[in-house]
Design a protein around this nucleic acid. Structure first.
Lengths: 339, 339
DNA sequence: AAAGAAATTGGAAACGTTTCCGGTAACGAT
DNA sequence: ATCGTTACCGGAAACGTTTCCAATTTCTTT
């Protein structure tokens, strides 16, 4: 049978449609007995309100967009999962969209918001810096940037954000290697084009070297992007230089796994010959052999918090929030103390 | 400014709203010049039709549901990506939903379809066997099961499916080990509760042993579910039995990585002491060290095909399709020939 | 040129909600 | 009994489309 409408329910319950609507939306002025009866009929006939009609009338949807740059990174898969769970609890729908590597994230976001009439958007990774004439601002849709570094101070009034202390975290990681006695520490990191988290991790590396009286040398840097393969190749380029590095900091776990593979494939040992520290704390790094010491981001928490902020923005129209999470260095098998 | 409506466009273009609607929907009977003019106005004013109104009128949505069991498996992440791309090309929206480990997949599917008024559903993994009184049938929403084995013949009229030859693929994997001279081959596989692909891979293992004159022995079997950790633990249980196995077939790559980690952590070598064959062909198995020989599923193709079938079902109301893909054994570093 | 057919167009109803507005009922106070 | 207040409720308009139907224009055919 065709779906029941609110009119049918009203008729069955012997009340007006507006009354049913009020019950449905928890509006106050409806008598207790009437409310009870209507609720019972709804239950009995398994009535589900038509969302399209609702959305049309309310001129908005229940759609939350999630825009992801770099699906292949399990770090984001995990985050998506957490986000989905939160969204689902509140009876919104998650519309997932993956961004190509070279797409203009801002443009895609705008189009997505307009086209799907999104009520809010969460962006996982990507670049949202070059905001021209407040395109995004005047469509008034709340946006949360997660794992994205906002460089322009002014943009903090446009977006909310959830992030970690990338610079500090990287500092701690490299400082850890220094304290273990390493003097020649390589860096495998995302390129200079990366104004986002990659740059900050790079900065942390620099600062840690300096703090430990070591010289920063560009020869020790090799660029990559967020894939196994790129980490592998980048590490190989670094090793080809014969710099006798004893440790390497890699700014993401999947790259760290690629890099580790490169090291091991050459017959070098981890950590005996080269120590490795990764970044992210995905499960993969724990099950690599040897397990990889890494900087763990509280990924689920970050996902949940992002969603929570978004709902605040949507429901209460509060001002933007900027949350910074702490990270934790997980010591595992991939690092060795030099004597 | 508020969004333009079709009425505004009609007015600007000096035509009736129905004409604009016809242009929008590629209906035939509208004159070439009028069509041209309307199109130009639409372009100029950047008009985007209101989807809620559309959906209401059409009494359906553009939402394609994707129901995933086991997000943590990168095999599915990859698949989701492929599916998303296809869905996006056709200007539908993907609504992603993750299923809990112990949820009733059929119930969730039904609820999802009703609640989100889905136009179609793709299920990645899960269990859709115990179909009671055609609950799903009479809501008439096309459903494609991917990587799910349909055991009840009658259900092939209810769902379409995309799958690989699990039994054959597993046979080939184990046969490969046999041909390398292995006599004592362990199996790490999903439990007996798994009526799905796990069972078939288990069957393939059995048949390969038999075909090579080896005895099937339950002692050599250890059960797990699809996580790194479970693969790790399961392998440890197997090794604890001191059966002197020289090879193990693991029915998914993430489990295989966990299992390999267990082997290596004991100081055993791969492949010198134990050979390992995995299943799926995820990228990580290539970057594990040693890289893991595995059965590669054409995951992107499978995702694309699933979506394609779904669109056929939606648009042409064709009959159900059941596609079986071929797999490929990728020989890598984790297997050794016994002399 | 007239008639009929075909192509093109506009008007209006309908989809299922929400919400404004007004109305009735109940009740206490006078 | 009348009035005013409050609580509760129903009718109907409106949201922005699609589509049926009828009307108008254009084209063919004679």
């Amino acid at each position: 049978m065709a779906d029941l409408s609110i009119k049918d329910i009203a008729e069955i319950a012997g009340v007006g449609v507006s009354t049913v609507s009020r019950v449905l939306n928890d509006h106050p002025d409806v008598g207790a007995k009437t409310r009870e009866k209507v609720l019972q009929i709804i239950e009995e006939y398994n009535y589900i309100p038509n969302n399209s009609a609702r959305n049309l009338k309310r001129s908005s949807t229940n759609n939350i967009g999630v825009l992801v740059k770099g699906i292949h990174n399990p770090f984001f898969s995990q985050m998506i999962k957490a986000v989905e769970e939160e969204i689902n609890k509140k009876d919104y729908s998650m519309i997932l969209h993956y961004n190509e590597k070279n797409s203009n994230d801002i443009e895609v976001a705008i189009e997505l918001i307009k086209e799907k009439k999104l009520k809010g958007l969460i962006c996982l990774g990507g670049d949202f810096d070059d905001l021209e004439n407040n395109q995004l601002l005047n469509l008034k849709t709340p946006i949360v940037l997660t794992s994205i570094n906002i460089t322009e101070e002014v943009n903090k009034d446009v977006f909310s954000s959830v992030i970690i202390e990338n610079e500090v975290a990287a500092f701690e990681a490299v400082d850890y290697l220094c304290k273990l006695g390493h003097k020649k520490i390589g860096l495998v990191s995302t390129g200079e084009g990366d104004k986002n988290v990659g740059r900050l991790r790079h900065e942390g590396y620099k600062r840690a070297l300096k703090a430990n009286g070591l010289e920063y040398n560009e020869d020790f840097i090799s660029f990559a992007h967020y894939t196994f393969k790129s980490g592998y190749e980048s590490m190989n380029r670094l090793l080809d230089k014969d710099l006798d590095i004893t440790a390497v900091f890699v700014t993401s776990d999947i790259m760290a796994i690629g890099a580790s593979k490169a090291i091991l494939s050459r017959g070098l040992r981890i950590p005996e010959d080269i120590s490795v520290v990764g970044f992210d704390g995905i499960e993969y790094s724990e099950y690599f052999h040897p397990s990889i010491t890494t900087v763990k981001q509280p990924v689920e928490e970050m996902g949940r918090k992002s969603t929570e902020i978004l709902f605040h923005l949507i429901e209460d129209k509060k001002e933007q929030q900027h949350i910074v999470f702490k990270t934790e260095l997980l010591e595992r098998e991939s690092c060795k103390k030099l004597k």
